[in-house]
Design a protein around this nucleic acid. Structure first.
Lengths: 200, 200
DNA sequence: GTCTATATTGTGATAGAC
DNA sequence: GTCTATCACAATATAGAC
């Protein structure tokens, strides 16, 4: 998507902010226009409908982290090296856009049938990645590759999806402490994940 | 909350289903009434407003897993034993109510300032739990208790929050395979988590 | 307790002047 | 490109009959 005019950029910026925070149904066109400081009808002029504006925002959100992951699947890295980069990439992305997980997951929960098409559009073929790693990490005989990947993603993403709960319960509402802990996880998680691969 | 009449129960059942799936703003009072097979104005008769109906559903959702966790914090279990029960309890709850994580997290993301009061109302005092475990698990010197708890929760909850994505990417859309994998995690996760405690 | 009728406001979207 | 005016419709909520 190309954003030519300044107005167009302001619309998308406000739409992103509000859709991330309050979801599609929870955000009105008026809300977005007010936040962007422009007339409401301009939203329709540029994006035709609310559906299309939401779609633009949703695709941008997906595009913020899917390509990075897909690129790695095609890279020549070795397994352990890959994990290191994967964790760092995901956490950096999450720190920058902490609200994306809930936003995307909420939309996909309401509308799960969208998943297959999205994957095709983004050119993601997980089966190829599995083969590569099952082969590369084949040394670790009893490893269930799917469960392993699921564990890695859980450890990287959940702390951001659950930010308000985590901040309040674990860090007593201290935002700084929360963010510091998230940064520490970039070093902590790879160490932990390597333990997964050890025999008992 | 006491649900006296059958009508009241049907309202809450439908409201839960739809709020979980489409969120507060994405669900209309008409939708709920239609699903429950009753007249729309009865919702206002029983719950006064949409806000109050949502609040009832939200509190029920919180109540489905918070008390179980809180009870354990006060129990006499040893650390390792606690972890085993914790994982099993959370996963069982998630299998039964897989949509609760996204529902709760979406609401708390829109409205993070609600957290402190909710914790007070539910009588959860995390600090006490930390002390108990830091003491009990003190053997494992370098363990950051907060990071440890965060890891456990991530591994238990995220696979359900991300259900559509996980099912599609990891299990090729096969719902049965997904559910089986989730059940396997009840055995798999405790083994994994114990590895966290090993020295390098 | 349950219904019909109605009040009121909000929302997405378009037409047309400038 | 940007505005005003307007439309059609959906939403929550209440009053009042039964």
């Amino acid at each position: 998507m190309v954003l030519n005019t300044e107005t167009e950029q302001r619309i998308v910026a406000s739409a992103e902010k509000l859709f991330y925070q309050k979801g599609k149904a929870g955000t009105s066109m008026q809300d977005i226009a007010d936040d962007a400081g422009i007339n409401r009808t301009l939203l329709n002029y540029y994006f035709r409908s609310k559906d299309q504006l939401f779609e633009a925002v949703f695709r941008r959100a997906m595009g913020r982290f899917v390509p990075g992951l897909a690129a790695m699947l095609q890279s020549e890295m070795r397994f352990s090296e890959y994990i290191l980069h994967l964790v760092e990439t995901i956490i950096d992305t999450m720190i920058e856009h902490p609200q994306i997980p809930i936003f995307v997951l909420q939309e996909l929960t309401s509308n799960p049938s969208r998943m297959p098409q999205i994957m095709r559009e983004m050119g993601v073929d997980p089966e190829k990645g599995f083969q590569k790693f099952t082969q590369d990490a084949g040394l670790h005989g009893r490893l269930d590759m799917r469960q392993f990947i699921l564990n890695v993603l859980s450890l990287c993403i959940f702390p951001f999806a659950a930010r308000p709960v985590v901040t309040e319960i674990l860090y007593n509402g201290d935002q700084e402490a929360y963010l510091l802990a998230m940064k520490q996880r970039k070093k902590l998680l790879p160490e932990l994940i390597m333990k997964f691969l050890n025999e008992r």
